[in-house]
Structure formats: C-alpha cells, structure tokens
Design a protein around this nucleic acid. Structure first.
Length: 423
RNA sequence: GGAGGAAUGGCAGAGUGGUCGAAUGCGGCAGUCUUGAAAACUGUUGAGGGUCACACCUCCGGGGGUUCGAAUCCCUCUUCCUCCGCCA
C-alpha cells in the first residue's frame, strides 16, 4: 500500500510512475487525498469532544469525592450531549477510515524509474542473456514425454488422487526434486540466508499483509471451515513473520530462505502452454526474502539477481533476465526482474524466478518498521525472489540434458541426487 | 473435544470503578566516578494520531457493552497454561 505521506507530498510523481502501468491515477489519488482530509477533520473534532468529556468526568469525580453530589449531578446531565456527539463522530470517522483504506488497497505500487512503460510481456526489456542452447538429437522429447519414458512423474496418477495439476513424482523424479531443494537451500544459507520452515496455511491478516488479499482472493485455495488460505508462495508466511515489528536498525538486513509447496488455483488456465510441469496447482519452490534499510534495498536487489544467476550457471541452463514493464509488473512490486530458462524441446522461455523490490509497499501494510540510530522510525523495504521454482527447472533440465540414452544431469546435482544420469 | 485458570510497556510483575499511560525490578540510553571497563550513583526510557512546536486524543490480547468515568464490571472471540480425552 502506498503511504499517505507519499501521496500527499509527491502526487505528480506518482501519477507519472503509475502511468507506466497504464493506470490513470490522478483522480484516484485526488480521491484518497480528499478522504484523508475529511478523515483528519473528523478526528480533530472527535478529539476535541472527547477532551471536553474527559474534563467533565474528572470534575464529577472531584465533586463526588468532596460530597457535592448535587453539583455533580448537574454536570452529569451535561455529558449526555457530548456522548451523543462523540458517538456520531466516531461512526463517521470509522466510515471515512474504511473508505480510505479501501481506496488505498486498490492502488498498486509505483514502478521504479527504470521500469519501462508498457502493456504486456512484449514490452519487457531483456537486460541479460547467457548460456548456449544445446543442439538436441533428432528425437528430442518435451519433458512430459521424458517424464513418462523414464517414469519420473505421473500426471494421470495425480488426477486420480487429487485432480489435474497435482503431479506425482516417483523414483528418480522424486529424488531429483529433493536434491534440487537441498541444493538451493544449501546455496542460499551459504550466502547468508537463514533457513525457515513456515506454515503452509496462513490467516487472512497475513494474506492482507503481503498483498495477496483482497485483490487476489480467487488465486488462493481457501479453507473456509477454518478461514485459512493455502500459501501461493513462501513469501506470504515468511514475510509475515515480521508483520507489525519495530526492529532496530542494527538487526537489518534480515535474509530468510525457505522451501515450501505452493498452491495456486490458476482458475481457467488450460491448454498447450500449461501442459506437463509448465503450470500446476501444487508445486515446490525455494524462496528468498529480504528486509532492508531503505537506502540499501536496490543494492540488495542486485545482489539477489547475482545470486540467482549463480544458481542457473551452476545448473548450466541457458537463461535470460527481463526487466518487467509497468503493465506486466506485479501489483505490489516497484521493480521486478524475471528469470527465464530456455526449454529446448518446447522451444520457449519458461519463467523460473521473479526477483522484486517492493520498497515500502508491503511494509506499509505489514507495519514493518525499524528505528534508526537517531531514533527515527521508518518503514523497512522488503524484497523477495525465487531460487528457484522447481517444476520449470526440472522441465528445462530434462529437456536440455537429454541424450539418446538418457538424461545427464549437471555436475552440481550429482551428489545431491545420488546419481548422475537418468536412464 | 470436555473442565478450570490466565492475557498489562523490551522482559518480569503490581494494579478490581475516578488525577493510571500505568508502581517496582531487570534490560536499554545518557551522565557522574575511572587511565579504560565493571560496580555504584543520578537522570531518562512504550506505541499510534495530531501540532511549526505545545496542547490534546487513542491504545493494558481483539471486538462489543454498562457507567459522568473502565486496565479494573458484563458479553463475545482469539491465544496461552493446567487436568482429562484423542493422536503423528
């Protein structure tokens, strides 16, 4: 959520920045500013009314103490009006506050100055590309065929047990998943991230905190009996660990990593592009979450990008990095780099990581602040990134490393999987 | 799931209707002393709103109520503890 302070002080800049999302923000911001003004006017009036009532109460107390009951009763009568008035003002204030809240919730984050304007993924800007696309042998197969051929992943079995989009990993397929998870966690902890195992269900407050609610309600599985949500990403529970905290500056930066399954309803997406592992209702992901001082967050974002690059290079996968344009940028993000690996058999790029700086957008909702050395309190900056989303890594590994007689895994995975070749 | 008890500032812990935003201790910060540190002593130390700054308002787990007045009384929800049941 954008801060009121920023909306009041930098409205023109915000209108310009939000314009990159193809959003005509001027009228929305004016509405917010108007609501905020009336909210504050109501608050001031209510405060004055309460102050008067408090004063009277104290006097009444004194009078009772000194036995002047009659005088006290006279004053009592006077409080009735004040009570009525403060009740009314309180209700108006509450209405104003919830209206303001509602408007604020609907405003997406303002894109960073480097974000290109644009409508869709066609306007994303490629900022880096590395790795050779391998020459495949004549009968190269897409990963869903390979998964079947070597009995690694059974999609039909998942349909039987649960439904479409819930694959069953078997044998070396399961072991490859586990090996990748361990490899990612080891690399992340070596880079200074603390490993976290968070809950896989979160409450509504957490969903609101990181911005999945209220706008993406339909994307999450909702356990209505207990009013909990299955997490769509580890970002939600891990970032919410810090919800409402007032940290010391010396505690920053905070760097967490965690593996969780991720659950997404992906309502309405069917077709060739969601075949196999390309889009699932349940998938595994190792996530990175950082909390930074405001002045450090962009350096930290660069650091995360470098870290993820290192992983992809060790996995020897051809990849590219895109700077997302305003139209493709997530609701809460100020700047996002998407990592895509090339899936040779499918001849397309697959998104496997998204690294974002949310600046203070999330922390404003989360009320995540820190106290700097001079005692000033300010909202922290939050960032996150995937390292990495498993299914598409698996898809790319299977497809890119396939040979006539099996799949040769990149060296770094051998010890993690306990085998070097799938055949 | 059943029966009881509890929830107060960074922590511990007083406070059962009226100058209580809250005693006291610990911790934190500043100072005195010291070559330096420790100890000791003195002062200071919650959060949000509001203001140029004050004033002022709100907050004692969340929500609602009683009262001129609530940390204190009532209702409700949540969480924690003890006992019982169930259970990986």
């Amino acid at each position: 959520m954008l801060t009121l302070h920023r909306i009041r002080e930098e409205k023109d800049k915000l209108v310009q920045a939000l314009g990159k999302r193809q959003l005509e923000a001027g009228p929305l911001l004016d509405k917010v500013i108007g609501l905020d003004e009336s909210r504050r006017a109501l608050q001031t009036e209510l405060d004055a009314t309460l102050a008067e009532a408090n004063k009277l109460s104290k006097e009444i107390g004194q009078l009772f103490k000194s036995g002047e009951v009659e005088k006290a009763n006279t004053l009592k009568a006077q409080t009735a009006d004040l009570k009525e008035k403060s009740k009314e003002l309180g209700e108006q204030l509450q209405t104003a506050e919830s209206q303001l809240q509602e408007e604020l919730y609907q405003l997406p984050n303002a894109p960073h100055s480097s974000v290109p304007a644009g409508n869709s993924e066609e306007d994303n800007e490629e900022v880096f590309q590395k790795g050779e696309v391998p020459e495949l042998h004549g009968e190269a197969l897409p990963h869903w065929e390979l998964a079947k051929k070597y009995d690694l992943i059974d999609f039909e079995l998942g349909v039987k047990v649960t439904g479409a989009g819930f694959p069953v990993y078997k044998g070396k397929g399961a072991r490859l998943q586990r090996g990748l998870i361990n490899y990612f966690l080891d690399r992340n902890t070596a880079a200074g991230y603390t490993e976290i195992q968070p809950p896989h269900l979160v409450n509504e407050a957490s969903g609101l905190g990181t911005g999945q609610l209220p706008d993406k309600e339909g994307q999450m599985y909702h356990v209505t009996a207990d009013d909990l949500y299955l997490i769509p990403t580890a970002e939600v529970p891990i970032t919410n660990i810090l919800r409402g905290e007032l940290l010391q500056e010396s505690e920053l930066p905070i760097a967490y990593t965690g593996y969780t399954p991720c659950f997404r309803r992906e309502a309405g997406s069917y077709g060739a592009h969601v075949r196999g592992l390309n889009r699932l209702h349940q998938f595994d992901k190792v996530e990175l979450v950082r909390v930074e001082r405001t002045e450090d967050s962009y350096a930290a974002l660069d650091g995360m990008v470098e870290h993820v690059k290192g992983l992809l290079e060790e996995l020897q996968l051809p990849y590219r990095i895109l700077r997302l344009c305003g139209g493709d940028l997530g609701f809460t993000s100020a700047l996002t780099y998407d990592f895509e690996v090339y899936s040779t058999a499918q001849e397309r790029w697959l998104e496997i990581s998204s690294v974002s700086n949310f600046e203070d957008f999330q922390s404003n909702r989360l009320k995540l602040r820190y106290k700097s050395a001079d005692g000033k309190k300010q909202l922290a900056h939050t960032l996150n990134g995937s390292s990495l989303a498993l299914p598409r890594v698996v898809a790319a590994l299977l497809e890119n490393f396939q040979k006539e007689d099996g799949i040769e895994l990149p060296e770094v995975l051998h010890s993690y999987c306990g085998f070097s070749k799938i055949d």
